[in-house]
């Protein structure tokens, strides 16, 4: 018999093995929930699956009794808007500063120490400062995302720009390129797929900052709702919301990856 490290699961086997932990978790949850509910039918900690269906029905498909809005839809749109604006502005700033830092030594000498310093400031620690400066409106929440992920994006893109082979930069000069053309025809196109990769990595922190900001000061949003219903121990709402956020995060990541593969085949197909 072959050693364990040389044995591979088949296609079906791999899928089945991948699903197994999810199924097990679900079973463990159902058993535990059942046990608690037989003891105390009013227990709120581990609601039965039926309660989730009711909660989802209430939050997603029925207008709120108080405002007449569909709460899940409203919360989702509000959160995605903040996330989208925050990440888009961060990506744009990172692209400009990252290209400048990575390509032009005079800009790098000026800005690189500042970026390194800023990236070490814990964003959550200055959240109160943001609320004081930008008020409790949308701006403060978007700013938290921007401050949280932009330094990382800049540093990553700067590094990627510095990794562009010297040969290619010389080559472009021998083809008559000026500095600006080296940026538009070499550095920028080379960095775009890398920017998408860096944004995918930064989406985790971006969600973290978004939910933290919404938890503290907001009137709608996924993070706001979770922290609101926490007061009533409404696990039947919190858990579906968490799963929904996870699904959204997965979908965004998937779309970015697919877009990058479609738009930049040369980047994904070459051996790295």
């Amino acid at each position: 018999m072959k050693k364990l490290i040389n044995r591979q699961p088949g296609r079906v086997g791999a899928w089945a093995l991948g699903l197994l932990p999810f199924v097990l978790l679900l079973i463990v949850y159902m058993v535990a929930s059942d046990a608690r509910l037989t003891e105390n039918p009013n227990d709120k900690l581990l609601p039965a699956l039926g309660s989730f269906v009711d909660a989802i029905q209430r939050m997603a498909f029925e207008p709120s009794k108080r405002s007449g809005d569909y709460l899940l839809l409203n919360d989702t749109l509000a959160s995605l808007q903040r996330l989208g604006i925050g990440v888009a502005i961060s990506a744009l700033v990172a692209l400009v500063v990252g290209i400048g830092n990575g390509t032009i030594p005079y800009i790098r000498s000026t800005l690189s120490p500042l970026v390194t310093g800023l990236s070490l400031v814990p964003p959550m620690a200055i959240l109160p400062v943001l609320f004081i400066i930008f008020g409790l409106g949308e701006l403060a929440k978007v700013m938290l995302i921007i401050i949280g992920i932009t330094p990382f994006l800049i540093r990553d893109l700067q590094q990627r720009a510095l990794e562009i082979p010297e040969e290619q930069i010389i080559k472009l000069q021998t083809l008559g390129a000026n500095t600006w053309q080296i940026i538009t025809r070499l550095v920028w196109p080379q960095l775009m797929p890398r920017l998408i990769g860096a944004v995918r990595l930064s989406l985790g922190p971006a969600w973290l900052f978004l939910i933290a900001a919404e938890a503290i000061a907001a009137t709608e949003g996924l993070g706001y709702r979770i922290f609101l219903v926490r007061r009533y121990l409404a696990m039947d709402v919190i858990l579906p919301y968490v799963v929904w956020i996870t699904l959204l995060a997965f979908a965004i990541d998937f779309l970015l990856r697919r877009y990058s593969q479609w738009r930049y085949p040369w980047f994904h197909q070459q051996a790295h």
């Binding site: 290619q168 080559k171 000069q173 021998t174 070499l186 196109p189 070459q270």
Partner: peptide, 19 residues
């Protein structure tokens, strides 16, 4: 004192632009 289009070059690697 810097590369320009009076001189063409072919390196061993990375001579063409992969994008």
């Amino acid at each position: 004192g810097e590369p320009d289009d009076s001189r063409g070059i072919v390196f061993q690697r990375y001579s063409v632009l992969n994008h």
